[in-house]
């Protein structure tokens, strides 16, 4: 991993077309500005992490009671349809 020191207001450029600027440094956070083409996806890591965790939980969850759930869901939908 490349580690660089940057001060508030300073930037780094990646691959000529992605610019990352340090906008503000707080006591417990940094505010970062990112200029990148639309085709480059920029994400907060924790959203990925939440989905990764949930995929794992889903694949390990007790896969039973589906027929019951299907029946109740249908009843609910039928009821909603009548109202």
């Amino acid at each position: 991993m490349l580690i660089l020191n940057r001060k508030e207001g300073e930037s780094i450029t990646i691959d000529d077309h992605i610019k990352i600027k340090i906008l503000e440094v707080g006591r417990t956070y940094v505010k970062i500005g990112i200029d990148a083409p639309r085709t480059v996806s920029v994400h907060r890591e924790e959203v990925f992490e939440r989905i990764r965790e949930e995929n794992l939980a889903a694949s390990e969850s007790p896969m039973k009671g589906l027929a019951d759930a299907a029946r109740v869901l249908k009843q609910k939908r039928d009821k909603a349809g009548q109202e």
């Binding site: 949930e54 889903a58 009671g65 589906l66 019951d68």
Partner: peptide, 9 residues
């Protein structure tokens, strides 16, 4: 994707 529990509800 659905995550199931022991109680399907």
């Amino acid at each position: 994707i659905v995550t199931l529990q022991d109680d399907f509800r």
